[in-house]
Amino acid sequence: MKKLIMVTGFPGFICERLYRGLIEDDPATNFILLVHPTQVEKAQHLTDKDERVTILPGDITQENLGMSEADKISLQDKVTHFFHLAAIYDLAVPQDLAYQVNVIGTQNVNRFVRTLRSLQRYVYFSTAYVSGTRTGRILEGELDKGQTFKNHYEETKFEAEKRVAAMKGVPTTIIRPGVVVGDSKTGETIKFDGPYFMLRFLDHFSFGPVPYIGKGDEPLDVVPIDFIIRATIYLAKSEQGIGTFHLTGGATYPSQEIYKIFSRELLGKEPSFYCPLGIAQTLLKIGPLRRYLGLDPEAVAYVYHPSVYDSTQASNVLKDGGIHCPDLIEYIPNMVRFFKEHRNDPAMRVQVR
């Protein structure tokens, strides 16, 4: 049977890269891209009228994903693989919006996926941070451990993953990425959030000494987008790829070490004094200062959270495909170079509230 992949979340960064990776992996693949009506024009531009692609306007928060009954029925015997990436990823998202998109939207997708009679694999993009406030080593087989959450993004992705994991009889791959950054080879990304907030902060210290913010002994689990794409595609077609997988970097380096290397690459100097974390967090409550520094308090919480995401199951499957996460230290220069080239592009700078 000819492969027909249906995808939600296009033209988001991860989804757009996944689409290109899937085409490269199998050029004969056809696609149904379920695209929110507000993103159809952008999606058409990115797919460049590719004959293998059908752009279907839809909305996962709506009944039947916003599709017509005719479209829904026509797809039930054709779709072989379903990749669900559509979600609200903003760490400061309001609860109602996060629940509507991440939880209700996933429930609607699950309902549709159950009707697909030719389905070979359902791939759901979760996050390693469904672990919430848990500390220590987090295993791939663990989900609900009574944890609380740092924000509504984590909480609603946890609730959504519970609903996906509860589906019976559906061949499902759950992907839990760490903090995703740009391409390890080119440095390319589409926005400077996550660890890039460190670079945005450091960019203010071209002159004078550079501070550390807190001790930063906690590991920060960073993974490049090219690894995420290669690993996801391999897991989606592997017989061993059913289950839950941490696509993480192993948190080899503490955040302080990453920050120091960022400073050296960006500014040519290392931090020389400490600003206690408590003082920094108090200062970040001052809106104008927070916006000037370009430092998101929600992102700071991830830098100082002591969790390690065990990826034994993912590593065991991926090693058969020769896939492993690149060493962060090796590609930091590419990240910083791309940041320098695009630091003044307003489209790249996530708005700090």
Rank of each mutant, 00 (worst) to 15 (best):
M1W: 00
L4Q: 11
L4S: 00
I5F: 08
V7A: 06
F10K: 00
F10A: 11
C15I: 02
L22M: 09
I23F: 08
N30A: 12
H36G: 11
E41T: 15
E41D: 15
K42T: 10
K42Q: 15
D50P: 05
R52T: 02
V53K: 07
L56W: 03
L56T: 14
D59S: 11
E63K: 08
N64A: 09
N64T: 03
G66L: 13
A70S: 13
D71N: 09
H81N: 02
A87F: 06
A87S: 15
D90G: 05
V93W: 07
G105D: 05
R114V: 07
R117A: 12
S118P: 06
Q120G: 11
T127P: 02
A128Y: 02
S131N: 06
G132A: 06
T135L: 04
I138W: 02
E140I: 14
G141E: 15
E142S: 12
K150D: 03
H152F: 14
E155N: 08
P171V: 04
P171F: 00
T172G: 10
I174V: 15
V179E: 15
D183V: 02
D183L: 07
S184E: 06
T186W: 04
I190H: 08
P195I: 11
M198R: 06
R200H: 05
L202R: 04
F205V: 08
F207M: 03
Y212G: 01
G214E: 13
K215F: 14
L220Y: 09
V222T: 11
I225L: 14
I225E: 10
I228H: 03
T232D: 07
T232N: 11
I233N: 01
S238K: 03
I242S: 09
I242C: 11
G243K: 08
T244P: 00
P254A: 06
S255A: 10
Q256M: 01
S263P: 01
S263H: 00
R264Y: 00
G268N: 10
E270N: 09
P276I: 15
G278I: 14
Q281W: 04
L284W: 13
L289F: 12
R291L: 04
P306I: 12
S307K: 11
V308S: 10
Y309E: 03
S315N: 14
H324A: 13
L328D: 01
I332T: 02
M335L: 14
F338R: 00
F339E: 02
H342L: 05
V350W: 09
R353M: 07
